[in-house]
Design a protein around this nucleic acid. Structure first.
Lengths: 299, 299
DNA sequence: TTGGAATGATAAAAAGATTTTCCTGTTCCG
DNA sequence: CGGAACAGGAAAATCTTTTTATCATTCCAA
């Protein structure tokens, strides 16, 4: 770098006061420092910036005048960057990148983001949807600051802040033989084929629950598409299990669905906010986290 | 200043290489320096800029990504300023501020500037016209780099580069009794009233020439307006003396004028380029000076 | 499973800048 | 002519930056 911002600052102060001494006072520094800074700029650029009037200040040369304009604009720019950077962690403005487990996202986030947008109109929320493992990878890759997801596959480097516990549900077609019960056991469901939501991690998690009960599922289909699962179930006697419970009881192609709680006592799955333990949270993300807590507290 | 351009450069290099070590190589510096620069930026801004993946590089946080954009733009800006400043003395581009004695300006400069503009289309010439003293003041005040003027009132701090010698002329109305001579002596003219070009310095200079010949002028009028002098002479039997010899033999209001050389041997007045001795000339001004010499050499 | 290679962080020493103090020379002004 | 104001220079002091050396962590291959 042929010059520093500091030198530019001293130069501008000198140009504007027309005196090295006054400039030094203005930037709270000794006079020779300013003198040296200017001398170095002149040497670096190979131009005289000032005409010195011995014992009565100095005035800009044409070259100095040109540099003055540029220097000021650069200093202003630097200040913008500084303000922007200071605000990165502090201000309730800018961008907030949030990761979210994809099946949860459309059920919860539109509402939360709506409220958040009204409270903090300066913050623009950017969403990153992915499966459970992808969300954790995204956190580690710094794609977003925190993520709304289940407490699945967490490692020590992830801090998990529980918002609510979600019970496991099964999905059945509305006209399924078991659909009119209040709740149903996986042991009963196991006689029907299973449609598996085949997302990384989730897939194995669902299977592990079933195996854990000593049962052997008959997997009719598996698909990573959430709506596909619902559709397949709606049109057959198959069942599926998942945590996310959409309010809509209709599949995308218009068939009715039933959602029943599972009878078996299982380790409760938690929905919450995951973040990298070693990264300090920004004020923006804390604000959103607070909103999440408020939202789930009321339930 | 909360940060330096250097720190920003290291930060950008790190962000772009995804590695402190690679960044250090790219900017030709040791790895701990880069590490320290980033740490300081993070401390100053109060935000984590990177997620460190121990032993396998780092990746940007959302905050880091935001800063990256700003940092790059600031560095680009700084580079523009640097290039601009380097060019201040070197490039044949930008602005060239020229001072000029006002009575000389319209006689010579339009032609010279025309040629110069064609040779150096990147340079825009800015003219500062003034009287002899004003031109010297302007030089000292740094308003322009050099000036086209007469060798009058020069001090030691001014370097004068002679272009040509100009003889003293007298101006008379075309129908003046003395107007049909080839040349005329001030001793003859002195019987007629004098119209004095009353510019600072010039005025006293003209008077000193006359007094120096032991003559006493009758000053009919004095005016700082060059065309006014010509007009007053054109409409009377008065005379005036000056160095600048316009090619036009007409006053602004359409009367004919005669220009005659002065017979007396006087110290020749020189037209040339004046500049502050202590200021180093830019390449731009040297180019213009060269053109001036070329122009007057041919005469 | 283990040892080596790669990587970032840290500490201490070295090198380099910046800053300050003190001083000089110039110019202006009463 | 003497004092005040000002820029610039020199040397010492102080701060920063850089480097060297080392450590801890992780990955990868044997």
């Amino acid at each position: 770098m042929p010059f520093t911002l500091k030198q530019l600052r001293y130069f501008v102060a000198t140009a504007e006061t027309g005196s090295v001494t006054l400039a030094a006072q203005r930037v709270n520094i000794s006079q020779p420092s300013v003198s040296a800074a200017i001398a170095e700029l002149e040497a670096r650029f190979g131009v005289d910036l000032f005409v010195r009037h011995h014992a009565q200040g100095l005035s800009l040369t044409p070259a100095g005048r040109e540099l003055l304009t540029d220097a000021k604009s650069l200093l202003d720019h630097a200040d913008d960057v500084r303000l922007g950077a200071m605000g990165l962690g502090q201000d309730l403005a800018g961008e907030l990148h949030i990761g979210c487990f994809q099946t949860v996202a459309p059920l919860i986030l539109p509402h939360l983001i709506g409220i958040f947008a009204r409270q903090h109109s300066e913050i623009s929320v950017k969403l990153h949807e992915n499966h459970v493992q992808g969300v954790l990878d995204g956190l580690r890759a710094g794609e977003f600051e925190f993520a709304l997801t289940y407490d699945l596959g967490l490692d020590d480097d992830i801090e998990f802040d529980t918002l609510t516990e979600v019970p496991l549900h099964c999905i059945l077609a509305k006209d399924h033989p078991l659909a009119r019960h209040k709740a149903v056991a996986i042991a009963e469901l196991i006689q029907y084929p299973l449609v598996l939501l085949a997302l990384p991690h989730s897939r194995d998690y669902f299977l592990s629950i079933i195996y854990g009960l000593g049962l052997q599922p008959r997997v009719a289909h598996e698909t990573p598409n959430f709506e596909m699962v619902r559709g397949l179930v709606a049109h057959s006697d198959a069942f599926s299990i998942m945590h996310s419970r959409p309010l809509s009881e209709w599949s995308l192609d218009g068939k009715r669905l039933a959602f029943l709680p599972i009878k078996e006592k299982l380790r409760p799955t938690r929905l919450g906010l995951a973040r990298l333990r070693k990264l300090r949270p920004t004020r923006r993300s804390l604000a959103f986290a607070a909103l999440c807590h408020l939202h789930f507290q009321g339930k």
